[in-house]
């Protein structure tokens, strides 16, 4: 009986316990759909998702930190309102919809970037430093970076505005420092908070890329998850969710620890 081979005849709690026990020894079981070990599929997918999420967060940070600082210096002015408006749109756009729109524009209408997949047909390994491969990354990264752009911009704006309101900035001005030097101080004080948010966003993207990966058929954990849901491939589903949760929690923990290390005031 198939049921017996997979242990489905036992109560769910027992099944879960057995599965957890095996996971601790590194055995995630076999995929029901492909018959291959879950670990093998999972870790290949994980590498692909990390590439995507890291790329998106770095891209988002480079843009958002600049415009966020810009807005933080001009709180209340029209340019600040424009930036805040962009940030609101960033967090409000359904990214799966943006993915479709980007595909329509760049793949269908302009035909300059590939719509789906990872690397040209027949290529064995993915090399992001080669243009032929790299162009497959562009649209997914733009799509995924949208929400982090919105959130990091908001955080930077309020962090910079807050630092500018502190007395030490006034002191620096009184000492006759150049605005550029003051900017350096402001950035240094605002940065830890922004980096923490950036780290959190990385965790979110790792777990939340399912929709975007599905649209771009990017072979990462999200795509794997979607396939597993459709085929009811339980071992893959469980294993992927567990690993993603562990990554998410670990990221948050590391950020917490780093933050207390940087800013001793947070220690109670």
């Amino acid at each position: 009986m198939v049921k017996k081979a997979y242990g489905f005849d036992k109560p769910i709690a027992v099944q879960y316990g057995i599965w957890l026990g095996k996971v601790l020894t590194g055995d995630f079981g076999m995929s029901i759909a492909t018959g291959r070990p879950v670990t093998e599929e999972l870790f290949r997918a994980l590498a692909n998702t990390v590439m995507l999420s890291a790329g998106a967060v770095i891209a988002a940070f480079s843009l958002a930190f600049v415009i966020g600082t810009f807005a933080g210096y001009r709180v209340g002015t029209p340019s600040d309102r424009a930036v805040t408006g962009i940030a609101v749109i960033g967090v409000s756009i359904p990214n799966y919809w943006l993915a479709i729109v980007l595909v329509i524009i760049f793949a269908v209408e302009l035909n300059v970037l590939p719509a789906t997949g990872m690397g040209p047909r027949g290529s064995e390994t993915f090399n992001p430093f080669q243009w032929d491969h790299f162009k497959y990354l562009i649209l997914p990264i733009i799509t995924l970076s949208l929400i982090p752009i919105g959130i990091i911009t908001r955080t930077t704006r309020s962090a910079v505005a807050e630092v500018l309101n502190q007395d030490f900035v006034e002191t620096l001005r009184a000492k006759g420092l150049m605005e550029a030097e003051i900017l350096l101080h402001v950035v240094k004080n605002a940065l830890p908070q922004v980096l923490a948010v950036m780290g959190l966003q990385f965790g979110y993207l790792m777990g939340g890329s399912i929709l975007v990966e599905t649209i771009f058929t990017w072979p990462g954990t999200g795509f794997l998850l979607n396939k597993a849901i459709l085929t009811r491939d339980l071992p893959v589903l469980q294993g992927t969710i567990l690993i993603l949760a562990i990554i998410f929690v670990t990221t948050n923990l590391v950020i917490d620890l780093l933050q207390t290390a940087v800013d001793p005031r947070l220690k109670r």
């Binding site: 965790g203 979110y204 777990g207 929709l211």
Partner: peptide, 8 residues
């Protein structure tokens, strides 16, 4: 529940 991003 905080161990998971909301979409996941």
């Amino acid at each position: 529940f905080y161990a998971f991003p909301s979409i996941l």
